[in-house]
Design a protein around this nucleic acid. Structure first.
Lengths: 346, 346
DNA sequence: CTGAAAGCGCTTACAG
DNA sequence: CTGAAAGCGCTTACAG
C-alpha cells in the first residue's frame, strides 16, 4: 500500500480512502490511485485491515459431516440467502462420527478446533450445526462469536438462536406411513447412541407405535452406516418364511436402511416391499445410490434451515446492542415415499 | 493479551512466548500465564498474529457446486489427508451454473470474489476447482496464493499443479458399456455448452461410437439439470413403437439422465432397460434420488482427487524455494452399472 | 480534499 | 529466563 501511495504520489491515507471511502477522494486522484492499484496488482492485507477495524468479512459455518446432504443443504440455503449480507461464507467440516467418538470421547470431531479458529479470526458471525453438546468448547469463545446461530441442536436454555427440525415428528411420521400401508410389525434398526436426533426419533417411533397399535422391535446397532444395517438385518431375514406376514425394517438413517436393502437383495425369494418393506429416516442424497430399489425416506428442510439461520443472524447483526431476543425456529419434515415401501411407477 | 500479562505479572512478550515457544519460558511462569489465560478466557487475535508472521493457518478450497457430490468428495479427501498439515481447511462454494453464466457472462459465479478473499486473507495455500478458465480472476492474486493446486480443470500451460480425471474416458466408457449390452443406437443428451468436462465427454462419446459402430444422435439441451433431460427425452419417446429395437438415452450428467427416467416413468408401456436403456455420466449422489429405477452412471475419483491435491500442495509447501516442479495427476474413472441399463439383483 | 500521526494486538530479535 | 522496543500494514480521527 505504501508503494501504491508512492507511485501515485499520494499518502497511504488517501489510498486507504480510495479503497474504503471513494467519495471522500477527488475524482482525478481516485482514478490515478485505482490505475496504480491495478497496474502493480495490489492486494490489501486483510489481517492489517481487520486488526484496526476489529472485524472481518468472514461468516463461519461448521457442519458435522459432508457426507450427509442435510448439511450440504444447510450450507446451500445459508449461501443463497446470505448473498446480500456482503460477507464471505466459510464452510468447515468438523467430521463427527460415532466411530471417532468411541475412539476418543474427548475429541470426537474437530468442532472445538474450528470454533477456536473462527473465534481467533473474529468472524462476523457463526452458524454451528453440532452433533454433541456444543457448550463444552464454547465457553471461552462465546463473547468473540456474536451472533451465533445453532442448527439442528436443541439446548434446553440457549443463549443463542436455534433452528431445528422436529426429529420426534420424523419418528412419528415413519410409523404412520408404514401403518398406512397396512404394516403392523416394525423392526427398528437404530444405533444405541445418545445422539440427540436419534433419541428424538426413537421417542417418536415408540409414541406413534403405541397410538396406532404397531409392534416395534428394537434392533440396536453399533453405528449408523450401511454395514450396520446389513449386520442388523441378516438375522431378521435369515429365517424368513412365506407365512410370516408383511412387516417392515425401519433404519434410523438412510445409510442403515440401504444396508438392510443389501441384505434383502441377496435373498431373491423375499419380495420388497410385498414381504418386507424398508424405510430410512433421513434425507441423505449422499448415501450411496441404492444399486437396486429406491428407498422410501424423508424430505428434510435443510435448505430452509440454512435460510432461516441466516435470517436470524442478520437480525441479530442489525439489532441495536442489547435489544436482540433469541429465537427458536422449528421446521417441518415430510415422508418421501419410494419403491421400498410401495409401488411408485406412474 | 496485555491484560493477561498484567494479571500474571509478566510482559506481553512473555505471554506470547508462553503461547508460541513454551520451552523458552520458566516452568512456573508458564503455569501462571496459562492459568490466567484460562481464567480470563483469552483468545488470541489472529489478525494481529498473521500481520506480523505474514502467514495464516488457513487453507482454502473453492468448489463450484455443493449439489454435486464429486466436489463434496474432493473436500472430504482434502480434509482427510490434510489433517496432519496443521492447517484449517476452509471450504467456499463459488456456485457456478450455466444459468448464471447466461444471465451474467462476466460473473457466472463467485469464484473471483473467493479468490480475492483468500488472497487478502493470505491463506497458506489454495485448492481451486473451477468450471471456467480461472486465469481471468487470478492475475493479481497469483503471487499471494502459493501454493495453488487446480482440480478438475486442464490448463494447456499451467504454472500450478493439476489434478484431473479423464473426461474423455468417461465418454468412451459410457459408449463401451452400452455397446456391451448390445445397444447400437444412442441418443446423447448433452448441454450445448463449452464447459471443459462436457467437451471432453462429447469427444470420447463420438470417438468410441466410431470405433464400435454405434450410432450417436446428439440432442442438445439448454442446461444440465433433470428438467432439461425430461424436455429432451419427451420427443424421443413420444412416438416409440414396440418394433423400434432397443436403444439408449445417455445423459451428459446424472441429473439429465434422471430427467430422462422421469419421462419414461410416465409411459408404462415402455420397459426400462429392455426397450430403452438410460445412463448418466457422473457420480452425483446428490442428484435427487430416483424415485423409480436406479441409474447406471460412474464412480468418479473425487476423494482421491482431494487427497492428491493435498499431497501436491504439501510437497510444494515443503520444497526449498525455487525447487518445486509442477505436476499433473490424472485419475481413472469407472462405470457403475445399475438397473437402468441391465438387471442387477443378486 | 489530503496527509501526518496514532494505534489496532500481536511477534521477534535483542539486550540484559 | 524475561522485558523494552520496533514494527507488521492497514484505518481513522483530526488538523490543515
Amino acid at each position: 500500500m505504501r508503494s501504491v501511495a508512492r507511485e501515485a504520489g499520494v499518502s497511504v491515507a488517501t489510498v486507504s480512502n480510495a479503497l474504503n471511502n471513494p467519495d471522500r477522494v477527488a475524482a482525478e486522484t481516485l482514478t490515478r490511485v485505482r490505475e496504480v492499484i491495478d497496474r502493480v496488482g495490489f492486494i490489501r492485507n486483510n489481517a492489517a485491515r481487520s486488526l484496526v477495524t476489529r472485524r472481518s468479512e468472514g461468516l463461519g459455518l461448521i457442519v458435522p459431516d459432508l457426507e450427509n446432504s442435510l448439511f450440504i443443504d444447510m450450507a446451500r440455503g445459508a449461501q443463497a440467502s446470505g448473498r446480500d449480507l456482503d460477507l464471505t461464507l466459510l464452510i468447515a467440516n468438523s467430521g463427527y462420527s460415532l466411530d471417532s467418538a468411541r475412539e476418543d470421547p474427548e475429541h470426537p470431531d474437530q468442532q472445538d478446533q474450528f470454533l477456536d479458529y473462527f473465534a481467533e479470526a473474529r468472524v462476523r458471525g457463526l452458524l454451528l450445526s453440532p452433533m454433541r453438546d456444543p457448550r463444552a468448547g464454547m465457553g471461552r469463545i462465546r463473547e468473540h462469536i456474536v451472533p451465533l446461530v445453532v442448527l439442528n441442536w436443541d439446548d434446553p436454555d440457549p443463549d443463542w438462536c436455534t433452528v431445528v427440525m422436529d426429529n420426534e415428528q420424523v419418528g412419528r411420521l415413519a410409523i404412520e406411513h408404514l401403518a398406512s400401508t397396512g404394516i403392523r410389525r416394525v423392526y427398528f434398526v437404530c444405533p444405541d447412541a445418545e445422539l440427540q436426533p436419534l433419541v428424538d426419533r426413537r421417542r417418536g417411533v415408540h409414541a406413534a407405535a403405541e397410538t396406532l397399535g404397531v409392534t416395534v422391535i428394537d434392533v440396536p446397532t453399533a453405528d449408523l452406516w450401511s454395514l450396520d444395517g446389513r449386520t442388523a438385518a441378516d438375522p431378521i431375514v435369515e429365517n424368513w418364511r412365506p407365512d410370516d406376514g408383511q412387516f417392515a425394517i425401519l433404519g434410523a438413517t438412510d445409510a442403515v436402511a440401504l444396508g438392510v436393502l443389501e441384505a434383502l437383495r441377496s435373498r431373491p425369494h423375499i419380495r420388497v416391499p410385498t414381504d418386507i418393506a424398508v424405510m430410512g429416516m433421513d434425507d441423505n442424497h449422499h448415501a450411496d445410490h441404492s444399486d437396486w430399489i429406491t428407498l422410501t425416506s424423508f424430505d428434510f428442510p435443510g435448505f430452509q434451515m440454512g435460510e432461516q439461520a441466516i435470517r436470524l443472524l442478520a437480525e441479530e447483526l442489525a439489532a441495536p446492542p442489547g435489544t436482540h431476543m433469541h429465537q427458536r425456529v422449528v421446521l417441518p419434515v415430510e415422508v418421501h415415499p419410494r419403491a421400498s415401501t410401495g409401488p411408485v411407477r406412474g
